[in-house]
Amino acid sequence: MSAAPAPQLPIGLVVNPASALGRGRRVAQRVRRALDALGVPSVVIAAASAAECQEAVRSAVAAGLRALILVGGDGLVGTVLQVDAARELPIGIVPAGSGNDFARQFRLSRDPDRAVARILAAEVRPREVDLGVVETPGGERWFAGGLSVGFDAAINRRANAIRLPLGPLRYQIALVTELLRLQPRHFTVSWPGAHRPFRGLLATTMNIRTLGGGIPIAPRAEVDDGRFDLVLVDECSRLRVFSVLGHLVRGRHERLPEVAIVRTAVVRIEAGDEVAYADGERVGTGPFEVRLEAGALRLLA
């Protein structure tokens, strides 16, 4: 008599049930039905806070999982990436957040059935994707999308305070509000072979092309080239700021004299008491020591 086949490990389905006023929970239900229909076992990992989510993920991974599917936005991706054991598993994403910039890089479908089909097909050959790590006096944080310091971080903070389910419109409202109180910042940015003090608007380290729900701040960034796109924007007059930002939101800012985009795998950013954000979540104050970890994520995409 032949031995029975070994039971298949389940996929962990990670969801923030409060995401986008319940959208994450509703999408997760559809994702689970899609997995059930294909005979793929799954376990739901749901928690309202980041700390609870990380602990639940640790426990589920220890119990045995073959992969994770994250149902949410950039914040959920960033939350799960802080769990060492989670980064050892292949990870799929079903975008259900407000910005979804990391998912946008791969043109991931918001339709649960299509998303599940693509994730399962990618299990045979996950895509190796770079991740970022930022070290501050307060500790270390992994990120998938970008580290914002300056004007874009201020927009992120204000957008996070808007609780209405407005999607990318939250960032547009926050951008206009921050423009009215715009002040240049002092930065000192260093990377191999360069040391640059300057007054400006931002010093942002990007692994992907967009932030803020689709703003193409690093229009040529790739997730598997072993380098960040470091975006620096110098101080300019308030009138000129409108022109610079107008070019930036359309991804046409690369040749502007106020803008520099540098490709590097490591960077140090000093910005006084400026608060940085990574993947849409608060990191804290610097200095910020940023490094790229090539191929650190096996993405099911």
Rank of each mutant, 00 (worst) to 15 (best):
E135T: 15
G139L: 10
V249M: 08
H247K: 07
L35I: 11
A122G: 11
F242Q: 06
G226A: 06
L166K: 01
R30D: 15
L299E: 12
A296D: 12
G132C: 05
R185Y: 13
L131W: 08
D130G: 10
A37C: 08
A260W: 11
L292M: 10
F106G: 06
G284D: 07
L201F: 12
G39Q: 06
Y277Q: 01
A96E: 10
R263N: 06
I269G: 02
A86N: 08
E88C: 05
A4T: 03
F187E: 01
R58M: 04
G214M: 02
G72A: 09
L175M: 13
P41G: 07
V71Y: 11
G146P: 03
V94D: 04
Q105R: 00
V116D: 14
R227G: 02
A47Y: 09
R66T: 10
G251L: 02
G24Y: 15
E254A: 12
D130Q: 05
F102H: 02
R291M: 08
P197Q: 06
A278V: 07
E52R: 08
G286H: 14
R220D: 10
A174L: 03
T204A: 12
I215K: 00
R66I: 07
A51M: 09
R291G: 13
L131V: 15
R118W: 07
L182M: 12
H195M: 05
D273W: 03
G167P: 14
D36F: 04
C53D: 06
Y277I: 03
R255G: 13
T188N: 11
E222K: 01
T177Q: 07
S109L: 05
N207Q: 02
L147C: 14
Q172N: 03
L239P: 07
Q82K: 04
E289F: 11
L68K: 05
M206G: 00
A159D: 04
